[in-house]
Nucleic acid binder design. Structure first.
Lengths: 228, 228
DNA sequence: TAGATTGTTAATCGATTAACAATC
DNA sequence: TAGATTGTTAATCGATTAACAATC
């Protein structure tokens, strides 16, 4: 089985907003957040200037990004907040709720299971799985933690398509393989390990230590420049 | 005070590897991780092929990335694992330990404070700060949690230059401003809020809900393509 | 030497920016 | 109409890829 490290997946997909560039996709959630903030403040109409300022991008970039989804503004007027919000939500596939399984209920997994952002933004946490017998059977975030050997069943029973991986790095690839075999097509991993997945599966990796190291790089550069 | 949303900061910085592209910088931690894995397995010599396979990039990209740091391989032979590892560590500014302060000792902050990756990879967690009186004074990860009004003092006393922000989004900008005023130059935030910082400060934002939404986008696209 | 593997160049590709015509 | 703001175009910029000469 020849598995690439993702990418690819460029199905033609005709019609409306067929091919949204990856860089644009990565910014859509931030636009959605800004739109929700404006709506919460009672804003009915907004502009690329206002949204861009909130998000921290240029107005030109925001307009270009939105243009990949369709033409939802009115020239000379701006964007209807509620309407644009729905369009962005739809583009992100949040029209119907996505079911998420979380594997690895340690410190971090525990925190993420309770993380306010998840249930509120289009996702339903439907199952928790852990290998530790002391954790299995306990209730976290209203769910009973399932044993690792039930992983495939749990995915099948709940219909989860997205997984959050908060296991130790040493078992991440194995767990990932089993999740994919069970039907998961999107994986958000916090384990510091490169995951190999088949082309139809999407992986997003968050590595706290890497993020800190990137910050350290810039700090070192500044220090070197300052002393020079 | 006219604050941009970061970027800029392109000091000339003469000499060795003066300007490493941002995309390359973002991959250096993964190269370092791969090198450490090879070293742990007893590897003495490695190649761009082996490292690239471990990281999940092409050998050409890895070689090009490393070439920005200097010329540390030997043609026809490969790379000395220990030597290259030290060079990458040095490039990332991990020669001396970076001091990190964590603000917001909730579920997520608690988990991150104990997170194995942090102390082991060039960072020392030197202080914890929280606004909740029930949390202040407790000991987490070997540190006594300090009250929010001591934030500036804590940064000054510990010499922390990097902050991890795990507060609610509503207070993130305020806390960030105070951290920056106290001398922090790098911020890793988990709060779902765009942070405005002066140009000399670096922000990395991790947003779990955004990551899930990006996965949802790709899933929706695949579903739409599959049904078409 | 022959085989292997780097470092670098040139070509391609994708993303960002700026400007402005279209249009309310 | 005059003023405002989008959607789109063209130019610029940066990142990736492929190929290969340099060199062990």
């Amino acid at each position: 089985m020849r598995w690439g490290v993702d990418v690819d997946g460029r199905r033609a997909g005709s019609g409306r907003g067929a091919q949204v560039p990856p860089a644009t996709v990565a910014r859509l959630p931030r636009y959605l957040r800004a739109l929700e903030a404006v709506a919460a403040e009672g804003g009915v109409l907004t502009s690329s200037d206002e949204l861009a300022a909130r998000v921290g991008v240029t107005p030109a970039q925001l307009r270009k990004d939105l243009s990949f989804l369709g033409s939802y503004g009115v020239r000379g007027v701006g964007y209807d907040v509620a309407h644009l919000r729905e369009q962005v939500r739809a583009a992100l596939g949040l029209a119907d709720e996505r079911r998420v399984v979380l594997v690895g209920v340690g410190n971090l997994g525990h925190a993420l299971a309770n993380y306010a952002g998840i249930p509120e933004r289009g996702f339903a946490l439907v199952a928790l799985v852990d290998a530790d017998p002391r954790v299995v059977g306990t209730t976290v975030a209203g769910l009973v933690v399932q044993p690792a050997d039930r992983l495939a069943d749990v995915v099948a029973e709940t219909g989860a398509t997205i997984a959050v991986l908060t296991t130790p790095a040493s078992v991440a690839q194995d767990v990932c393989d089993r999740l994919v075999a069970a039907g998961v097509v999107g994986v958000l991993t916090f384990a510091p390990a490169a995951l190999r997945v088949p082309p139809h599966v999407d992986v997003r990796a968050v590595d706290v230590a890497s993020e800190l190291q990137i910050l350290a790089f810039h700090e070192a550069r500044r220090a070197a420049a300052g002393e020079a």
